Computed example of a mutant assay.
Amino acid sequence: MITLSGTPLDVQQIIQAATRLQAGAVNAFIGTVRDNAKGKRVLRLEYEAYESMAVAEIQKIVDAAAVRWPLQAYAISHRVGVLQPGDVAVVVAVSTPHRADSFAACQYIIDTLKETVPIWKKEVLEDGAEWISAHP
């Protein structure tokens, strides 16, 4: 399951979608909106995405992960739109037979997603706003 959502993410539902009986490990990364950046208060984040391209790119990442680790299932969801501090911005959940593979696959997916997927973030701080490079 790969989704982009304009509504709050249901973390438990995403984890459940990645859960399989044959898997001994389910690993989830939950990215949240923090209340500060660069020493300033964050008022909100605004995410935009090229949806079809973002979903296709995430699928490529999952396919590459499946070559390296024995993924049993996965579920990835990223918010778009306006988010407040404390909101969940992204959830990556994967299941594998053993925990080491689960940790490694989950980290690979979130790290690569942040590097390559066309999702853009605007930070609105107490003294102005700025688009943050999605691909540093």
Score class of each variant (00 low, 15 high):
41 R>Y: 08
41 R>V: 14
42 V>M: 07
43 L>T: 09
43 L>H: 14
44 R>P: 01
45 L>Q: 04
46 E>R: 12
46 E>T: 13
47 Y>C: 01
47 Y>P: 02
48 E>I: 06
48 E>K: 13
49 A>T: 00
49 A>N: 05
49 A>G: 05
50 Y>L: 09
51 E>Q: 10
52 S>D: 15
52 S>K: 14
52 S>Q: 15
52 S>T: 14
53 M>Q: 07
53 M>D: 07
53 M>F: 00
53 M>E: 09
53 M>P: 05
54 A>D: 08
54 A>I: 10
54 A>H: 00
54 A>V: 11
54 A>S: 13
55 V>L: 15
55 V>T: 09
55 V>P: 10
56 A>K: 15
56 A>G: 04
56 A>L: 06
57 E>R: 15
57 E>V: 14
58 I>H: 05
58 I>T: 11
58 I>D: 06
60 K>H: 13
60 K>E: 14
61 I>G: 01
61 I>M: 05
62 V>L: 10
62 V>Y: 01
63 D>P: 11
63 D>Y: 11
63 D>L: 11
64 A>R: 15
64 A>V: 08
64 A>T: 12
65 A>H: 06
65 A>P: 07
65 A>K: 06
65 A>I: 07
66 A>L: 05
67 V>Y: 03
67 V>K: 11
69 W>L: 03
71 L>D: 13
71 L>K: 11
71 L>S: 12
71 L>T: 11
71 L>M: 13
72 Q>D: 13
72 Q>A: 14
72 Q>V: 15
73 A>K: 09
74 Y>G: 01
74 Y>D: 00
74 Y>R: 06
74 Y>V: 05
74 Y>M: 04
75 A>Y: 06
75 A>V: 07
75 A>W: 03
76 I>S: 12
76 I>A: 08
78 H>K: 03
78 H>Q: 02
78 H>R: 00
79 R>D: 09
80 V>A: 06
80 V>Y: 08
80 V>H: 08
80 V>Q: 10
82 V>K: 10
82 V>N: 06
83 L>M: 09
83 L>D: 02
83 L>C: 07
83 L>K: 09
84 Q>H: 14
84 Q>E: 15
84 Q>R: 14
85 P>C: 01
85 P>L: 05
87 D>H: 03
87 D>P: 03
87 D>Y: 08
88 V>T: 15
88 V>I: 12
90 V>F: 02
90 V>T: 04
91 V>N: 02
91 V>L: 04
92 V>F: 08
92 V>D: 00
93 A>S: 10
93 A>M: 05
93 A>Y: 02
94 V>N: 04
94 V>M: 07
94 V>C: 09
95 S>M: 01
96 T>P: 00
96 T>R: 04
97 P>D: 14
97 P>Y: 11
98 H>L: 03
99 R>G: 07
100 A>C: 09
101 D>H: 10
101 D>N: 11
101 D>R: 01
101 D>K: 04
103 F>P: 00
103 F>C: 00
104 A>K: 10
104 A>W: 02
104 A>N: 06
105 A>S: 12
105 A>G: 11
105 A>T: 03
105 A>N: 07
105 A>C: 01
106 C>A: 12
107 Q>S: 09
107 Q>I: 02
108 Y>F: 15
108 Y>R: 05
109 I>M: 10
109 I>H: 06
109 I>V: 09
110 I>C: 08
110 I>D: 06
111 D>W: 03
